[in-house]
Nucleic acid binder design. Structure first.
Length: 592
RNA sequence: GCGCCGAUGGUCUAGCGGCUAUGACUGGGGCCUUCCAAGCCCUAAACCCGGGUUCGAAUCCCGGUUGGCGCACCA
């Protein structure tokens, strides 16, 4: 029996070990002992991350047309008061002194006070003490209340400057810039904006490596749509796409179902077509960066876990070896919650004028005081009397005499001084507050998932001819070529000047084409192939003595170790077709 | 934040109060080598931090940091 690393390490450990060793991920500040919740992306890690982000941009920014913006990572207090983060993110906690169970203080006194939200910690302490509130678990005494706030607080400017917070999500920037974005998009719904950047949450106890960080990268799109139009013009693109849906009812049954987008919309499982399109788009993105299809599902938020303002919310979840299903993307219909909240806070109308397809004719009861007669009768009061008349309800005009009260004075207006008619108006549109569809991506979690799903160990049987009977393990990161940090390695077969020189020429040529290319002449060729397998380099080019004869090189495929012979003159075209055009490996040259 | 368990070169590891700290792999330099971690020579590299106990601490004790797991938290 062969003992592989599988037997002693779980997949997470193997992946993280490789990631640290090869320069994908490093613990931050390790020189000083490290700090939980922070990771550095090493040379290969940040290249991989950029590749993933680039695909995201291609889909969301270029294809969907949601332009990218960049807002400060520090936000002022008002923004997060409006968003609910200041209130909702700062809960008063207290612990039982006996069993150490932690509770939210305001929850403990719910039965005493209905409205516990607005109370200060001192008041909460006092209420708990006066009412003799005990630990609901073990009956022990409740310790003093402390505040925990998941937002990092900072100060803007010197002294007692303005309060600021590191943003806990990138989304708010798009909401705050809503009017400017609307103008950029020339006041037409739907439109969207995106942002890729760092967000910060001061997690109480971050664990699980890169799955839960204190500083992390989000990619978010905020798509503003007409609340009355939740269809999607391009839905036919995904209609027949089958997704692994774990809906509210499916969760009750404990089993997800494979279903087409069309079916999910028709059966009302996904709230509406526009959201369904976004769910399918997330699926498209995740598979393109290399998430394994059968380790991906979309889980609907249960009614009780959904934010109160959301209509429907789906999480893309990825199956990982150690952590089980991990949420990597959330897709929510947040309705007009965010825009309305910011409108209220800023006292600015955040709406958009939406023109109807057809102008609508609206009937209205209109009061027209005859000012020519009102003037002589009411003199300087004529104007206020007229205003008062206009404010009266329709019934007031059904009587013989019309009574109005102006400045505490009751006046009687003869009927003939007022005309009232049903008039028909043309209304061509109205101000509406758009609804927001928000797909929100945790890039770090996606990157980890990509690493784990790409990780593979292959047993290479021992070669009897060489006398060793030890099987060996080949570790390969089977990245999608598009995301591989290094696209191609150029290797002289032997460390000899006459092979090194042409190899370096090839490196220079490929660099000119903008390819991320590496050069390696240390150790035997087999060792160098394995090194490149381990970091997921899709192709290796080897320069040998035949190269000097006929100007060809071998190209080796990472996944199956096969080789073809290709002319040097064609090498950049061949690589381009292999990497980006999906060309079959066997067709690009003569197999060896 | 609480509880339990761990921490030795880049990685894995030996060590059980008496070292100049073991070994392998990896890395670097060289020799050799005509395609999948071969061989030979040379070389670099570690006891998480701080206190204590002791003649003497990688080893025992305490505190911290950090990693894993469980509880809580995850808007």
């Amino acid at each position: 029996m062969i003992i592989t690393v599988d037997d002693i390490m779980d997949r997470y450990e193997q992946v993280i070990e490789l990631a640290k060793r090869r320069g994908f991920l490093w613990n931050s500040f390790e020189l000083y002992g490290g700090t939980a919740g922070f990771y550095d992306y090493g040379p290969l890690g940040s290249t991989l991350k950029r590749g993933i982000e680039q695909i995201w941009r291609e889909i969301y920014v270029i294809q969907e047309g949601f332009m990218e913006i960049e807002c400060p990572t520090i936000g002022i207090e008002e923004v997060f008061v409006a968003s609910g983060h200041v209130g909702g993110f700062s809960d008063p906690l207290c612990e039982c002194e006996q069993c150490k169970e932690a509770f939210r203080a305001d929850h403990l006194i719910k039965h005493i006070m209905e409205e516990a939200d607005g109370l200060s910690n001192e008041e909460l302490d006092r209420i708990i003490e006066q009412n003799g509130v005990k630990c609901p678990e073990c009956g022990g005494n409740i310790g003093n209340i402390y505040e925990f706030n998941l937002m990092f607080k900072t100060q803007i400017g010197p002294g007692s400057g303005r309060k600021g917070y590191l943003r806990p999500e990138t989304a708010q920037g798009m909401f705050v810039d809503f009017l400017k974005l609307a103008r950029y998009y020339r006041d037409k719904l739907p439109f969207g904006a995106t942002q890729i950047g760092k967000s910060y949450r001061n997690e109480i106890s971050p664990r699980q490596g890169v799955i839960r960080l204190r500083e992390f990268t989000q990619a978010e799109a905020e798509i503003f749509i007409d609340p009355m139009v939740k269809s999607h013009p391009n839905i036919q693109r995904f209609e027949n796409t089958s997704l692994n849906l774990y809906s509210d009812t499916a969760q009750e049954m404990g089993r997800s179902q494979i279903m087409t987008i069309r079916e999910a919309v028709d059966k009302g499982i996904i709230a509406h077509e526009f959201l369904a399109y976004q769910v399918a788009l997330v699926d498209h993105f995740l598979q393109r960066v290399g998430i394994t299809a059968d380790k991906l599902r979309f889980r609907q938020h249960r009614k009780d876990e959904m934010a109160h303002y959301a209509i429907d919310c789906w999480d893309a979840e990825v199956l990982t070896d150690r952590f089980g299903w991990v949420e990597v993307v959330g897709i929510a219909d947040r309705t007009d919650y965010d825009l309305s909240a910011h409108a209220k806070m800023s006292k600015t109308e955040l709406s958009i004028y939406s023109e109807y397809e057809q102008p609508r004719m609206v009937e209205k009861f209109v009061i027209k005081p005859n000012m020519g007669k009102m003037g002589p009768m009411f003199k300087d009061k004529a104007k206020v009397v007229a205003e008062a008349l206009k404010a009266l309800p329709q019934e007031a005009f059904e009587k013989e005499e019309i009574k109005v009260s102006v400045d505490g004075e009751d006046l009687t207006v003869p009927r003939e001084l007022v005309e009232f008619v049903q008039e028909t108006f043309k209304v061509s549109g109205e101000n509406i507050v758009p609804h927001v569809i928000e797909p929100s991506f945790g890039i770090d979690r996606i990157l980890y998932s990509v690493l784990e799903h790409a990780y593979d160990e292959e047993i290479i049987p021992a070669k009897a001819s060489e006398g060793n009977n030890e099987d060996e393990t080949r570790i390969v990161l089977r990245f999608r070529k598009e995301v591989s940090p290094i696209k191609v390695a150029v290797l002289p077969l032997l460390t000899r000047k006459e092979l090194i020189e042409p190899a370096k020429e090839i490196v220079a040529r490929l660099k000119d084409k903008g390819l991320m290319v590496s050069y390696d002449d240390s150790g035997t060729i087999g060792r160098r192939y394995r090194r490149n397998d381990e970091i997921g380099t899709p192709y290796c080019i080897t320069v040998d003595y035949d190269t000097l004869e006929d100007n060809t090189v071998t190209v080796r495929d990472r996944d199956n170790m096969q080789q073809v012979r290709v002319s040097i003159d064609a090498i950049d075209d061949v690589l381009h077709e292999l990497l980006y055009k999906g060309k079959e490996f066997e067709t690009v040259g003569k197999p060896l």
